[in-house]
Design a protein around this nucleic acid. Sequence first.
DNA 1: TATTGTTATACTCTATAACTATA
DNA 2: TATAGTTATAGAGTATAACAATA
Lengths: 164, 164
Amino acid sequence: MTATAARTSPRKRASNGAARRTDADEIGLDALVGHAGYAVRRFQIWIFQDFIKTLGNVDIRPTQYSVLTVIGANPGLSQMAVAKRLGIERARLVHLLDSLEQRKLVKRIKSKEDRRSHALHLTAQGATALAKFKRLAAEHERNVETKIGKENREQLLRILAGFT
Amino acid sequence: MTATAARTSPRKRASNGAARRTDADEIGLDALVGHAGYAVRRFQIWIFQDFIKTLGNVDIRPTQYSVLTVIGANPGLSQMAVAKRLGIERARLVHLLDSLEQRKLVKRIKSKEDRRSHALHLTAQGATALAKFKRLAAEHERNVETKIGKENREQLLRILAGFT
DNA sequence: TATTGTTATACTCTATAACTATA
DNA sequence: TATAGTTATAGAGTATAACAATA
């Protein structure tokens, strides 16, 4: 939206005596208003904060939830496969799994086919816990729906389906 | 979308002899498919990477661009006001401004009204540079449009307008 | 007392590189 | 030689707390 940027003239806000108006509503964003990335980033921050809050009691963050969900749906995957599928660095997944394994939610099993790799599985406890996490995540999703509206949420999922 | 989650059955992927299929396309996401946050996060990563790449020659990242744009549109703002408006921690803005000031794009001017605060302005060089950054950011925005489509991008901006 | 800018610390996340053990 | 998992490091980004100067 370059047109918007070009049309917006700076509101003078001199430091030499003019009234300071610093309310968020009063401060223009200029070109940022036309940038999808800015809106998406702000929304993503809101949505993650709601997720973290809604799953606060069970201490599960979005990335942990995504790892558990993919392992639950695809038992036996290697770490590389999970990392690639979710766009996580394999080095980072090591620490994520260390934490989840310490909490007895996930287990690494040495593969007999390829002894370099680990087959990932949920523990029985992990499967039970994940069911609970999914209920809480669904509650979070209803918060999203309340925030932006049912129709808008569905449009959003449709528009961004290609990025999953 | 709990229904989706409940309906999806895990595809067995035993580590004891079954063929390993680890292509990203073949690995189900289960409940993640119904979560707006997951799609939004993946899209946000794509969009920031494209922004960073498109503005790579001028070495400007999304947060730096947002700070410069807001200062350009509202000269004389305090650091607190910029931080609040953009949702950046004031402690973090200090470092961002240190960097932008070293690059002679921004200057801090001691306020005469409130000697605790700094009025922020673009330098002449900063204003010229920002005009160039905006042209590159518009190019990035056209990449977004190419990626998701003109209509979808406009719908996205409309849906998320409340988060800016 | 409260606020602005600053410094400092810790933790998350991203991006690399290098090492080991296997293939 | 290439790959899977691991370890380590550095840079963003987020979240706090505390301090000096000023209100």
